[in-house]
Design a binder for these strands. Structure first.
Length: 434
RNA sequence: CGGGGUGUAGCUCAGUAUGGUUAGAGUACUUGGUUUGGGACCAAGGGGCCGAAGGUUCGAGUCCUUUCACCCCGACCA
């Protein structure tokens, strides 16, 4: 993409209501803009990042044997009355009426719809297990949306549901999904922890959360410094009466706090702040029994499905990447999430040699299917650098005054290092870096 | 949903206690010129139903009433 053709409205100042780095930088960088309380538009850069995350989620789930579906976003309220969740979810569910005065709900989650979909279509143990998911808009009418994409009312979530003929098989799938989620978050380039969680209102026995470690995380978790044990403090009796106190502490304060008890492996435990980006539950027969979704087992007996449910906050991940990867100048995208891997910066657009080299390199990288931005704008060097740092391209090729000596520079956004390199080697070097 | 706050240019904000020229600044935008390695400088421009509706008044951005929106603290939450 040429910068001169792109729609990337960057800004020097952030809206006054943005407090978190991800909120500020995503708006300043022209990734998103706010449409209303908890409602955001994704502009081209934001849309690219969102799609990249969505694609990685889909690829890993499909490899693990899941099938993607798409459920209707508007659902009749009767669907929710049958499970009794109409009451439980309360005002979180946005209700609307059609022209016939029939009441509908914008889906906040889809346990009921998915059970209804499978009910009477899968009727034998021979057709199990089954794992269906969708990556679709959700709407929860939060009392207080905040923190930009981290807590919107409308958001993109991947929600998956699995159906099994036995608890054992459901647990097997649960463990498979834990591993799959680890692959997803690892591919995204995130530092994360899997922790034991409180299963909350959705119910069920086993429940694990996936937290991206970041100063601004809303949850406090404890993690072992040695093994992979971790837990949300909400689940630990020792902390139950101190949750509010601990949640209020800053990241720095928490690091100083010692956890009295040791991990079962014998090592020390530490407090961390986390952003919840994934949650997996063992549901059992809670919904299948309530909605009478049954199958026939080997003995011809009718039983409700054993179920599990799996969520990933896709739009929240866009913000979580930045909460974990930013500096005072802006975004630092991971390689898997960067909207463009390389930015070719022509320092002086009036310099024909700079322009020619920029165009040539741009074309060459595009031919090699590298996601590349050509900054062919008329702004000055400083403006372009600030802009590149704000947007967070992993690499910027600076074509500038050193070109007279046959050199350009490659700027690494994460390390902030500038490396001079001969023009003849810049293509190979970029291909090696990405 | 309780408590508090804010709505004035695309964005950040003055101006409102005490009503009174043509409503301001910075930034962004347009044009011309000078610049060209860290969000440049000079000059000239365009851009506002002062959130909305009603009211008080000779006169309302400013006072009164109603309403809507957004934000913050709590409670709740992927």
């Amino acid at each position: 993409m040429r910068r001169s053709r792109a729609f990337i409205p960057t800004a020097k100042e952030a809206p006054s209501d943005a407090t978190l780095p991800s909120h500020k930088f995503l708006i300043r960088g022209g990734f998103i803009n706010q449409q209303g309380a908890g409602l955001y538009n994704f502009m081209p850069l934001g849309k690219i990042v969102l799609e990249k995350i969505r694609t990685i989620v889909k690829e890993e789930l499909d490899l693990a044997g899941c099938s993607e579906v798409q459920l209707s976003f508007v659902t009749p309220i009767s669907l929710w009355e049958r499970s009794g969740r109409c009451e439980a979810m309360g005002k979180e569910m946005l209700r609307i009426k059609d022209r016939h005065e029939n009441e509908f709900v914008l889906s906040p989650t889809n346990e009921e719809a998915m059970v209804e979909l499978v009910k009477n279509r899968v009727t034998s143990y021979k057709d199990l297990p089954l794992n269906l998911y969708q990556i679709n808009t959700k709407f929860r009418d939060e009392a207080r949306p905040r923190y930009g994409l981290l807590r919107g009312r409308e958001f993109l979530m991947k929600d998956g549901y699995s159906f099994h003929s036995s608890i054992e098989d459901m647990v097997r799938e649960f463990n498979l999904m834990e591993e799959t989620y680890k692959k997803i978050f690892t591919r995204l380039g995130l530092d994360f922890r899997v922790v034991a969680a409180d299963s909350g209102a959705i119910g069920g026995d086993g429940s694990k959360e996936f937290h991206v470690l970041a100063d601004s995380g809303e949850d406090t978790i404890i993690v072992c410094e040695s093994c992979d044990y971790g837990a949300n403090i909400e689940t630990i009796d020792e902390f139950k009466d101190k949750i509010d106190e601990l949640n209020e502490k800053s990241y720095e304060d928490l690091k100083e706090l010692k956890v009295a008890q040791k991990c079962s492996c014998g090592a020390n435990l530490h407090f961390k702040k986390g952003i919840e980006v994934g949650h997996i539950f063992q549901l059992g027969t809670k919904y299948s029994a309530a909605l009478e979704a049954n199958f026939s087992d080997e003995n011809g007996r009718s039983k409700p499905f054993e179920m599990a449910t799996f969520g990933i906050g896709v739009s929240r991940l866009v913000a979580a990447v930045i909460e974990q990867n930013h500096d005072e100048n802006g975004c630092i995208w991971t390689k898997a999430t960067a909207p463009y891997m390389v930015n070719i910066m022509i320092s002086n657009i009036k310099d024909v040699n700079q322009v020619n080299l920029g165009e040539e390199l741009y074309e060459k990288l595009q031919d090699s299917h590298v996601e590349v931005m050509l900054d062919d704008g008329k702004e000055r060097f400083g403006f372009k650098m600030k802009d590149a740092e704000l947007i967070g391209f992993p690499y910027t090729v600076i074509i500038g005054k050193e070109l007279e000596g046959g050199l350009v520079q490659i700027y690494d956004r994460r390390t902030k290092e500038n490396t001079a390199i001969n023009v003849s080697q810049v293509y190979d070097k970029i291909m090696e870096l990405i």
